[in-house]
Amino acid sequence: MMWVSSVRMAADAYLVCLHHALTTEKEEVLGLLVGQYTEGTDGVKCDIYSAVTLRRSDKRKDRVEISPEMLIEAQQKAEQMSAACGQELNIVGWYHSHPHITVWPSDIDLQTQAGYQQMDNRFIGLIFSVYNEDKKTKVGTHQVTCFQAINQNPEGESPQYVRLAVPLQVTPQPKIHSNNQQALESLCSTLYEEQNEVLEASRQRSSQYPLAHLHNASVLVRSVCNLTSLVSGPLVATVESQLQHLQEQKHQLQHEASYLRQLLKDNNISTTAA
């Protein structure tokens, strides 16, 4: 069996995962990672290019699950990315968040990871620990770890999985790739669909529990407001900042062009191409 020796992750894909993790501090969120493997003499290397955010099929505080339908949907997105960029891409791993708790994988995380590795032993996992605070500086911090699961018990005995640390390097990118831009833009709709599924289930029982349904509807409204504050607001601010930067660049280039035209005129140099 060949273990993954190192992982390189595009900075914009890292941004998607972190932004997704910060959308809620009460429950874990999850998604899948798109990239490719390269096998060499020093082991398997994994490159992550994009992240696919997913709806949660299990919204308990201490666990997340990926349904088969979500895996199929994510693989279809990977195939679309492959066609767009001209290289073969696949689902190479998954990520989930640990709000207010340590970055290390739980026993459930290790069992989940081991299950994925049964399908492909190169599959990797990322955990984003968010909403933590440095005790000395009182400054908010986040951590990320990359891991695989390895069974430390002999064959024939009940498996006991432990964490196998995988080195992770975040590589800078000149711009946000369109796939990751779309993932950021779809965060609101993904989280809204999760909340709306709960409301729809409540609506079916509204005649029996009208007050419970009214409460759930109010929770949905509050959640939408939180999404606007946590997701839409920062995205709009980022776009406005980029727009301002581009406008300043445009103004500077126009000023330089005006200066160069005047310089050519003063030196009696024609600007008309021969």
Results as ranks from 00 to 15, higher is better:
143 Q>S: 15
17 C>V: 03
103 V>I: 11
265 K>C: 08
95 Y>D: 03
20 H>N: 15
4 V>T: 12
251 H>V: 05
37 Y>C: 05
80 Q>D: 07
44 V>C: 11
239 V>T: 13
170 V>G: 03
33 L>V: 08
197 E>P: 09
196 N>T: 07
171 T>E: 15
46 C>A: 09
259 Y>N: 13
149 A>H: 09
42 D>A: 13
127 I>R: 05
76 Q>W: 01
93 G>L: 04
170 V>Y: 00
242 Q>M: 15
151 N>E: 00
123 F>Q: 10
86 G>E: 02
60 R>H: 11
68 P>G: 05
119 M>L: 14
125 G>M: 12
12 D>N: 09
129 S>C: 11
176 I>R: 08
225 C>Y: 03
49 Y>L: 14
9 M>N: 08
126 L>R: 02
98 H>L: 02
128 F>W: 04
159 P>R: 01
73 E>F: 00
99 P>C: 14
38 T>Y: 14
273 A>K: 11
82 S>C: 03
230 L>Y: 02
43 G>V: 03
82 S>D: 07
153 N>H: 11
180 N>K: 05
106 S>F: 02
74 A>R: 00
94 W>I: 04
233 G>H: 08
89 L>T: 04
268 N>P: 07
171 T>I: 15
96 H>I: 06
122 R>T: 00
212 A>C: 11
24 T>Q: 01
191 L>G: 04
106 S>N: 12
5 S>K: 09
109 D>R: 00
44 V>E: 06
93 G>A: 02
138 K>D: 08
69 E>N: 10
196 N>G: 00
60 R>C: 13
144 V>I: 12
262 Q>K: 15
188 C>T: 01
173 Q>N: 13
205 R>L: 12
102 T>W: 03
147 F>K: 04
29 V>K: 06
21 A>V: 01
199 L>Q: 11
135 K>S: 13
267 N>W: 06
4 V>G: 08
154 P>G: 07
1 M>E: 12
105 P>V: 05
50 S>E: 05
112 T>H: 12
159 P>Y: 02
59 K>R: 14
116 Y>R: 10
251 H>R: 13
133 E>D: 10
125 G>T: 08
23 T>S: 01
173 Q>D: 06
96 H>T: 00
197 E>C: 02
107 D>A: 07
119 M>I: 11
247 Q>A: 14
252 Q>N: 14
18 L>C: 04
147 F>I: 07
38 T>W: 14
13 A>T: 09
99 P>M: 04
203 R>I: 03
207 S>I: 05
47 D>E: 15
149 A>R: 11
164 L>R: 15
197 E>Q: 13
214 L>A: 09
21 A>E: 02
227 L>K: 00
104 W>P: 00
66 I>Q: 01
256 E>M: 09
257 A>M: 11
37 Y>E: 12
100 H>E: 00
101 I>C: 11
34 V>E: 04
156 G>D: 00
206 S>D: 12
263 L>G: 01
30 L>M: 13
21 A>C: 12
30 L>N: 14
218 S>M: 09
224 V>R: 02
141 T>C: 14
266 D>Q: 13
187 L>N: 04
156 G>H: 06
246 L>G: 09
254 Q>R: 13
157 E>D: 14
115 G>D: 13
177 H>M: 11
164 L>V: 13
199 L>C: 10
33 L>W: 05
40 G>I: 04
54 L>N: 13
